[in-house]
Design a protein around this nucleic acid. Structure first.
Lengths: 216, 216
DNA sequence: ACCTGAACACCGTTCAAGT
DNA sequence: ACCTGAACACCGTTCAAGT
């Protein structure tokens, strides 16, 4: 009962896997459901992937690679003045948000992560990739331009930005209809540019913090 | 070969589960290893827990409850002036960090999350609990005190703070020796109080952002 | 009542047999 | 070469039998 060889079977399996994993998660998705969806037998799976996890990883990697490619749009922003820079930044935010929204099934998979890794839950490789990308970008910007406050710690800044993206991804994965990306983006930028407190409060807190820091 | 009934068996099983889950994760940990560690047979597990996941959830809930209890230390800070407030805040930060560090095995478990939930990976219940706690706190503070900038969106602020904690937890879970909590805490507070850019740059970006916002 | 451990169920993975 | 599907392996879960 064998069918003619299907040169696109690997692609069909990946597409089927994306759907099954996105709906049921790695643990609940069954190989047989994936292969049925692709129109082949259970055994065929192992002609194209070493294991269930290997397929999971393949899908995750595709997604993360694409995301980092989109995020490179921030790199062309280095030389603009604030008046042009801000709309350009918001535009990049939009592009990234769109990518995440478009690839929601894969995003859901990636957020689940792999059970074998140390801290699987967070989609370890995903978060790790984002965080190092962030840190590298911040460090580079600290060297080329004088925009960052000298005592902004790149590690902590990368942690904060990555955390924001991760939480944002979480919201995307959970919501049924498209959130207002632009609004969130502006609200987030405001905090990054000026903190979350009233100017005089923020200044007082900052002074007290610096006093405390010198004192310890 | 039955042993005398052990009134603490449930406790012993939980302790064993914490260890096994923390080392191997939910998927890799085997019931038989947990029961062996507690000195009973495989079948005894199901006299005390409905399923493997039920135990997982039990452990996670204990941890999250404890964390939220520790985080309540921030609630006693409402009335202080900056000079006293800042050391008190840093002290709370320390307490929370200590709790996370002390309970690392459970934290690791919680970060993994449950495979059955929608967005299991992020330790969904954990992150969800944190985020709503954050938002509630911010909203309450916005009402009682006038510290937050009026256009700080509580949703986005909660998202940012929760993301920072989640990323911080991730670091704790992955590191072998105790990080310098105080240093990270100060660096993070600096950004929250004054943004991450030089004052004049931040102000220019903020102006441009407001112009852009009015314009759209 | 509480515990044991053999038996069962449910997939992931393999492999001998088909085309 | 590529595919099939029965067989195997590995646990999570159940349950009849012990004390």
């Amino acid at each position: 009962m064998a069918r003619p060889a299907n040169p696109n079977l690997q692609g069909a399996l990946i597409e089927a896997g994306r759907l099954e994993f996105a709906t049921k998660g790695l643990a609940e998705a069954r190989i047989e459901d994936i292969t049925r969806r692709a129109g082949v037998s259970k055994g065929a799976f192992y002609l194209h992937f070493e294991s269930k996890e290997a397929m999971f990883e393949h899908i995750a990697r595709d997604f993360v690679d694409g995301l980092l490619r989109v995020m490179n749009c921030f790199d062309s922003l280095q030389t603009l003045e604030p008046r042009e820079l801000v709309p350009a930044i918001l535009n990049c935010d939009d592009q990234v948000s769109e990518y995440l929204w478009e690839h929601r099934p894969a995003l859901r998979i990636v957020m689940e992560g792999l059970p074998s890794t140390a801290c699987s839950g967070l989609g370890d490789q995903f978060v790790g990739a984002l965080e190092s990308y962030m840190r590298a970008t911040i460090v580079r910007h600290k060297e080329t331009m004088e925009v960052f406050s000298p005592d902004t710690d790149p590690d902590v800044a990368a942690l904060l930005l990555t955390g924001a993206i991760v939480m944002f991804c979480r919201r995307i994965v959970r919501s049924d209809d498209k959130p207002d990306f632009r609004k969130s983006s502006i609200a987030l930028r405001k905090i990054l540019y000026g903190g979350m407190f009233r100017p005089e409060v923020g200044r007082a807190l900052l002074d007290a913090l610096q006093a405390q820091e010198a004192h310890s």
